[in-house]
Design a binder for these strands. Sequence first.
DNA 1: TTAGGGTTAG
Length: 459
Amino acid sequence: DVWTYNTLVKGLCDEGKIDEAIRVRDEMESLKLIPDVVTYNTLIDGCFKWRGSTEGFRLLEEMKSRGGVEPNAVTHNIMVKWFGKEGKINEASDAVVKMVESGVSPDCFTYNTMINGFCKAGKLGEAFRMMDEMARKGLKPDICTLNTMLHTLCMEKKPEEAYELTVKARKRGYILDEVTYGTLIMGYFKGKQEDKALKLWEEMKKRGIVPSVVSYNPLIRGLCLSGKTDQAVDKLNELLEKGLVPDEVSCNIIIHGYCWEGMVDKAFQFHNKMVGNSFKPDIFTRNILLRGLCRVDMLEKAFKLFNSWISKQNSVDVVTYNTMISYLCKEGRLDEAFDLMTDMEVKKFEPDQYTYNAIVRALTHAGRTEEAEKFMSKLSETGQAVKTHDTSQELDASSDIMYSQQISDLCTQGKYKEAMKLFQESEQKGVSLNKYTYIKLMDGFLKRRKSISKVDHAN
DNA sequence: TTAGGGTTAG
């Protein structure tokens, strides 16, 4: 029946076999089994993932015209997700507006997707506005919302604050999961607090959470970051002993660890061993190994590998090109770097800030300042120029402190509504609040959630 | 049966 076929479609989409998945849809039609909204949602999501947005939109249209199926909340959430992933946060917001217009209410999924998008785009303020809206609509922030915010804090190297938040969250009834701990572990390693990370690993197990690759990978990555790749391998073996299967990410982490320590031979040895163990090297693996070779000055060997990949479909990307270009630049082999840049453009890979940065630095170093300036302007055209301060943000620092202080105070007094109002005002003025203020606001949201739960129970 | 949080490269 339709469910059986939908399951098949999902399986094919997961493996990236979109053409086959579409053929299954056609087969359904010929058997007079009408593809439903689930069939199309699965196909649309798969298309966005493997074929990009153009194909995704085409299928969305096809769903309405050919299938006569109307988009539901899941369809809209898929759109919001992919806009967010592409960093098109405005389009994502528009998608939510469209969703409302077509009579579908944004749900917890929608909000979490948007919040994640804003966090990834570095727009923490917008993320908080979303959380506020969510609360106003009576939707409770859940463990995914919390994990998203934790991730953002950890990326900002504030693992302590993230941890404090989880302590409070647990007191308020949140059940922390493996993702929570994996995120915190990553955060502590990032903050060079290995001991705390390891303590959390134990705490997680003590609380009855059985680790899988989801939490093993951050631990393994952390050990590699601390220059303890051999210990990381021990953890990988521990994972194997438990009957768990390391994924591509786990293997790439270890390979990167060895390369980082300059042990390229060991990296290749491990790579070869794991390939025999059903590990499928991907674009990450190739880029890691390539950079590893370049770092120890084995540029010619790197070139040999690079040339062997370049003719194959999907074997290289802009990172691969940039790796070669930047090491050529370091060696002062500018002409070859330019050749590669031309080649990448022919192959439809857009040079980005890394490409231009490498070229500009090499040109400056060679005293070719005029050419360097020409590329500088190209760099700014990419819209991802080297970090310069936005002058509009350069307000008097005292107003930052003032707003932060006042918002924190209001939170302490439990006046979250007023705190939010002031927060919105600060956003409009472009004031940057300190991290502590964000913590206080988050804490406020958790408290609000608790009071909502209480009402639920009372009802 | 479909959608959200985490882990990998420059």
